[in-house]
Measured scan of single mutants.
Amino acid sequence: KFNKELSVAGREIVTLPNLNDPQKKAFIFSLWDDPSQSANLLAEAKKLNDAQAPK
């Protein structure tokens, strides 16, 4: 279960257009550290992506 959630969340995070590479890497490392938090980490990444969207 975690492997699928981890890969789905990881793929989504790397495609978020408004995150820079260090931010993406930080989220990916957090996913590896605790795969059970993949849904929460993906939600946080999406929030940050939205907040950094060009206005």
Score class of each variant (00 low, 15 high):
2 F>H: 10
24 K>N: 02
26 A>T: 06
7 S>P: 07
23 Q>C: 04
15 T>F: 10
42 L>E: 04
37 Q>D: 06
9 A>W: 12
14 V>D: 05
8 V>N: 11
10 G>H: 15
41 L>P: 01
11 R>I: 10
10 G>A: 15
49 N>S: 05
25 K>H: 10
13 I>P: 01
24 K>S: 00
9 A>R: 05
10 G>Q: 15
14 V>L: 15
26 A>R: 08
2 F>G: 08
8 V>C: 12
9 A>M: 09
46 K>R: 12
23 Q>I: 05
22 P>C: 14
10 G>M: 15
46 K>V: 07
37 Q>N: 13
19 L>N: 01
16 L>Q: 03
44 E>N: 04
48 L>S: 02
41 L>G: 01
22 P>T: 15
50 D>W: 05
9 A>P: 03
36 S>T: 10
3 N>P: 11
49 N>G: 00
9 A>E: 09
28 I>Q: 02
38 S>G: 09
49 N>T: 02
12 E>C: 11
4 K>T: 12
47 K>V: 07
36 S>V: 04
17 P>N: 05
33 D>G: 08
47 K>N: 05
8 V>Y: 11
12 E>M: 08
34 D>W: 02
5 E>M: 09
23 Q>R: 01
50 D>N: 07
32 W>L: 12
29 F>L: 15
10 G>C: 13
45 A>G: 01
35 P>R: 00
47 K>A: 13
18 N>D: 02
34 D>Q: 07
38 S>E: 14
44 E>Q: 12
46 K>A: 04
30 S>F: 09
49 N>D: 04
46 K>P: 00
24 K>T: 02
3 N>G: 12
42 L>W: 04
48 L>V: 07
48 L>K: 04
39 A>P: 05
44 E>S: 06
34 D>Y: 06
44 E>D: 06
21 D>P: 12
26 A>H: 12
9 A>H: 06
1 K>C: 14
20 N>H: 09
10 G>Y: 15
33 D>C: 13
16 L>I: 01
51 A>W: 06
33 D>Q: 14
21 D>K: 09
51 A>F: 09
34 D>S: 05
51 A>M: 13
31 L>W: 01
31 L>K: 00
36 S>R: 07
28 I>T: 02
8 V>F: 10
36 S>K: 09
49 N>Q: 00
17 P>A: 08
47 K>C: 08
40 N>R: 13
52 Q>K: 04
14 V>H: 08
34 D>G: 02
41 L>A: 03
1 K>D: 09
1 K>V: 12
37 Q>Y: 04
55 K>F: 12
40 N>V: 13
52 Q>F: 05
22 P>A: 15
26 A>E: 06
8 V>T: 13
51 A>S: 08
11 R>H: 11
3 N>A: 11
19 L>H: 00
45 A>T: 01
36 S>W: 03
40 N>K: 14
46 K>T: 05
25 K>R: 11
9 A>G: 03
28 I>M: 05
1 K>H: 11
9 A>K: 04
45 A>D: 03
19 L>I: 04
28 I>C: 06
15 T>H: 11
18 N>E: 02
51 A>K: 09
15 T>P: 00
6 L>I: 11
35 P>W: 05
29 F>R: 12
41 L>H: 02
34 D>N: 11
4 K>L: 12
1 K>L: 12
34 D>V: 03
55 K>A: 13
24 K>G: 03
2 F>D: 08
52 Q>V: 03
31 L>N: 00
53 A>L: 06
33 D>W: 09
53 A>Q: 07
34 D>R: 04
22 P>Y: 15
2 F>T: 10
24 K>Y: 03
28 I>E: 04
2 F>I: 11
11 R>Y: 11
16 L>G: 00
39 A>T: 08
20 N>E: 06
54 P>E: 09
16 L>D: 01
54 P>R: 07
12 E>P: 03
33 D>E: 13
46 K>C: 02
31 L>G: 03
11 R>A: 11
19 L>P: 01
24 K>P: 02
31 L>Q: 02
3 N>M: 10
9 A>Q: 05
18 N>M: 01
15 T>L: 14
12 E>I: 14
6 L>H: 05
26 A>Y: 15
47 K>R: 11
29 F>D: 12
31 L>H: 01
10 G>I: 15
26 A>D: 06
18 N>H: 14
18 N>P: 00
14 V>R: 09
6 L>Y: 05
41 L>Y: 04
11 R>K: 12
31 L>P: 00
32 W>S: 05
35 P>M: 05
7 S>Y: 14
43 A>R: 07
52 Q>R: 04
1 K>Q: 11
13 I>F: 02
38 S>V: 15
6 L>K: 03
38 S>A: 15
42 L>G: 01
28 I>W: 05
7 S>A: 13
24 K>M: 03
44 E>A: 11
25 K>T: 10
21 D>E: 14
46 K>G: 02
49 N>H: 01
54 P>W: 05
10 G>V: 15
50 D>V: 06
29 F>H: 10
20 N>C: 09
13 I>Y: 01
49 N>C: 02
30 S>C: 14
15 T>Y: 08
3 N>S: 12
53 A>K: 07
5 E>A: 10
45 A>K: 00
19 L>Q: 00
2 F>Q: 10
24 K>H: 01
54 P>C: 13
51 A>Q: 13
51 A>P: 02
50 D>H: 07
47 K>G: 05
38 S>I: 13
45 A>N: 02
32 W>G: 03
32 W>N: 07
7 S>I: 12
53 A>C: 06
18 N>A: 06
17 P>E: 07
6 L>T: 06
40 N>P: 04
53 A>I: 06
15 T>D: 12
44 E>M: 11
35 P>I: 04
1 K>S: 12
17 P>W: 03
40 N>S: 11
9 A>V: 15
51 A>V: 07
52 Q>T: 02
14 V>M: 15
39 A>L: 09
6 L>G: 04
30 S>V: 06
24 K>W: 04
